[in-house]
């Protein structure tokens, strides 16, 4: 979790930021799923035996969250692609210097 956050903050590359975000989110998902684990539990399938089973709700939630996460990553990657098309780089520093230059030109 912290690793992902660290990547987002420190990396200069937009692509790496998206990857960091994905790692961060996945870590949270795993945390969620781990909440559901019941000791000696099995999959929550309705059988005649009365078994201890893991809580299915977090799984369901995380399924939703994964979809959201995928969408976020997809949109992030699409944006990175667009940024690359417009700036021909995805390095934060280079883009900043490009912007500074164009600001100066405008003035």
């Amino acid at each position: 979790m912290v690793g992902g956050l660290f990547i987002i903050i420190t990396s200069q590359n937009y692509l790496k930021k998206v990857v960091g975000l994905a790692i961060f989110q996945t870590a949270v998902f795993v945390f969620f799923v781990s909440l559901a684990k019941v000791l000696d539990g099995t999959a929550p399938i309705l059988t005649k035996m009365e078994n201890a089973y893991s809580n299915p709700l977090p799984h369901v939630l995380i399924l939703t969250a994964i979809v959201v996460g995928v969408a976020t990553s997809a949109l992030g990657l699409a944006l990175v692609l667009q940024i690359y098309r417009n700036y021909e780089t995805i390095e934060e520093k280079e883009i900043q210097s490009l912007e500074l230059k164009s600001d100066k030109l405008n003035v």
Binding site: V18, F24, V28, F31, G76
Partner: peptide, 26 residues
Amino acid sequence: RKALLAAFNYLIIGAIGATFYVIGVG
């Protein structure tokens, strides 16, 4: 074209915020 950067920043920061929220929900 700065709109792209703005959108990207919003995406990253917003996603961090949302994920924080999910941790709290957890």
